[in-house]
Amino acid sequence: MNCQQTPGGLLVTGITDFSLPETLDCGQCFRWQRLESGAYRGSAYGKSLTVSMDEKGLLLQGAAEEDFQALWRSYFDLDLDYNKIRGALANKDPILKEAAAFAPGIRILNQEPFETLCSFIISQNNNIPRIKGIIERLCLLFERETGSADRFPTAEMLACRREEDLAPLRAGWRAAYLLDAAQKVAGGEIDLERIKALPMPEARAELMRIKGVGPKVAECVLLYGLHRLEAFPMDVWMKRAMATLFPEKSVLDFGPYAGIAQQYIFHYSRLHPELFR
């Protein structure tokens, strides 16, 4: 990868196997908005960014090269060889090969763990526009404490609030779960950094000690917030896809990159509804 400062922003060239729409609109994150221009505006780790991509490369507006190297390169997971991973997955099953080739630009973001935990607690029985709205209102509620509406509140900030304090979020019953998550993280009962290194059964069990965190949310946090690429979120749609497309396979058959396989399968299945008629 090479970086060049241009009048329009920082241009990063030499990037392959990466698509902004496939990555930012696949349901793994909720802080990005697609603009009329086709660019995306969002934030991560308290930094805001407008980013677009064309045949010239990845254009970052509002970021210098040091920002790219320190944050965005890792956030977009640009150093992992997804082409090699797709090849390994393709050898496991012809349908998986087709699914991987259908959306080769999906990458798993390196998101902030506590934000991801809260986001997927909010995501339960919810739709993406409403999830985004609740998260936006949460950041606005804590803007005075964080210094910016682009910053997600820390666990410590959230832990000292009461359920009625979160009424402006219009999050319903999820507010109690957010507070429980914040209190357990802030108090050290749940150590997200430690969970990153635990064996998967223990990591799942630790996360599920939080009220409202079941198997699916735990898998989402592991995959999207802790970058455990073997995690495999299973909702009703994915269970149906597995039963229809891979009836003789289990998650373990997809190996250490099962989470990437899940993204390919989910995207492929969602855009091929005729497979399930």
Score class of each variant (00 low, 15 high):
Asn2Gln: 08
Gln4His: 15
Gly8Asp: 11
Gly9Ile: 09
Leu10His: 00
Leu10Tyr: 08
Leu11His: 00
Thr16Tyr: 00
Asp17Arg: 10
Pro21Lys: 05
Gly27Lys: 05
Gln28Tyr: 02
Gln28Trp: 04
Cys29Pro: 01
Phe30His: 05
Trp32Arg: 00
Ser37Asp: 08
Tyr40His: 02
Ser43Asn: 15
Ala44Cys: 13
Gly46Thr: 03
Val51Gln: 03
Ser52Tyr: 02
Ser52Pro: 08
Gly57Leu: 00
Leu60Asn: 08
Glu65Val: 15
Phe68Ile: 08
Tyr75Thr: 05
Leu78Gln: 01
Asp79Gly: 14
Leu80Ala: 05
Asn83Phe: 07
Lys84Gln: 07
Ile85Thr: 04
Ile85Gly: 11
Arg86Tyr: 01
Gly87Thr: 08
Ala88Gln: 14
Asp93Tyr: 05
Ile95Lys: 06
Ile95Val: 05
Arg107Tyr: 03
Ile108Ala: 06
Ile108Val: 13
Leu109Cys: 06
Leu109Glu: 07
Asn110His: 14
Asn110Pro: 03
Glu112Thr: 12
Pro113Asp: 00
Phe114Leu: 13
Glu115Pro: 01
Ser119Tyr: 01
Phe120Val: 03
Gln124Glu: 10
Asn125Glu: 15
Asn127Ala: 12
Asn127Tyr: 11
Arg130Cys: 12
Lys132Gly: 04
Gly133Asn: 10
Gly147Met: 02
Ser148Tyr: 03
Ser148Ala: 04
Ala149Gly: 06
Arg151Val: 09
Phe152Pro: 05
Thr154Ile: 13
Ala155Phe: 14
Leu158Gly: 15
Leu158Tyr: 12
Ala159Asp: 03
Arg170Trp: 09
Arg174Glu: 14
Ala175His: 02
Gln183Lys: 14
Lys184Arg: 11
Val185Lys: 05
Gly187Pro: 00
Glu189Pro: 01
Asp191Tyr: 08
Asp191Cys: 13
Leu192His: 00
Glu193Val: 06
Arg194Ser: 15
Arg194Phe: 15
Pro201Ala: 04
Arg204Val: 04
Ala205Asp: 11
Glu206Tyr: 13
Arg209Ile: 06
Arg209Leu: 09
Ala218Glu: 04
Ala218His: 07
Glu219Ile: 04
Cys220Trp: 00
Val221Glu: 09
Tyr224Thr: 05
Phe232Thr: 06
Pro233Gln: 05
Lys239Asn: 14
Pro247Trp: 07
Pro247Cys: 13
Ser250Lys: 09
Gly259Tyr: 10
Gly259Met: 01
Gly259Ser: 01
Gln263Thr: 08
Gln263Ser: 09
Phe266His: 13
Arg270His: 12
Glu274Leu: 08
Glu274Ile: 02
Phe276Gly: 01
Arg277Ile: 08
Arg277Thr: 15
